[in-house]
Amino acid sequence: MKKWKYLTMTAVMGSALMLGACGSDNSTQNGNNTETNAPASSGQDAADEKLQGSVAGDGSSTVAPIIEAVVEEYAGAQPDVKVSVGVSGTGGGFEKFIAGETDFSNASRYIKDEEKAKLEEAGIAFTELALAYDGLSVVVNPENDWAKDLTVEQLKQIWIEDGKEKKWSDIDPSWPAEKIVFYSPGTDSGTYDYFDEVILDGADLVSSATLSEDDNMLVQGVAGDKNAIGFFGYAYYLENKDKLNIVKVNGVEPTNETIETGKYSPLSRPLFTYVKNSAIKDNAAAYDFVKFTLENSGDMAEAVGYVRLPEEKYAEGLKTLEGLK
């Protein structure tokens, strides 16, 4: 009987130690793997320059699908470069960028002055690179047959916080006297900031709005309520066309063409990545990854439901990048 107890005791202690050791075990194994890979790649070194190193990024969930596609492709081209990208939202991404934890930060809006100031304080020089266009799409329920075309002024009237309960009839007397239900991306997202700045001139967004970092929640919310209105990235509208009605803004509907030409104004917006200059200069892997991103983000953006920039914009970005090296 005692033996059993001993056994279990040693088993526990052993397993605790094992688990600890397991970590190092794995690491040596993996270490071996990379070592066995290394000669192979160094053999090709002269041919297509296999790089090693790591690159870290974070930021906008709107930009994330493009970056994920780029990272996936890049893993094929440079398997030994470890690219890791978080999805903390544009604001959350900048916070980590300021803390010096990331080499690049994806954003679905321009950098704010306060973020610029903090970066300056931290001594981090950065460069803005555009990756693609997104048409911020305003959507309503398919049963909503009145709000098909809104002016910017009307949008402002709908979304601004004025301390009163809002009905559709307040915007246009011919519309139903029903309470408007609001769905908006969360305050950490660049989408929220962009909409707030462009449509509301920075005034407060209506406080009764349901905020969610998960855009699918917004889609479901608007699809489930006749009096709902919401906004989010173009890709989410494209994927849910059958459940939602798109609202024209100043008579223009967001399409690939109207977004690219900027006719869908003011809600067509560029998507960016902000890169740390010193990372580009000192880290060959970071330079190579960002270059790869600029070369491929047009195709990748289209593949995941965004709109590519005109070719010369990418060329311009690449030129800026060369200048940083």
């Binding site: 270490g31 893993a75 978080g86």
Partner: peptide, 22 residues
């Protein structure tokens, strides 16, 4: 993990305790 800011987009396995991971 969300607060720490663990990345979600990566195409490699961790190889030591200081590696990035998801």
């Amino acid at each position: 993990l969300v607060v720490i800011g663990i990345p979600v987009i990566l195409q490699f396995l961790p190889d030591n305790l200081l590696s990035q991971f998801t």
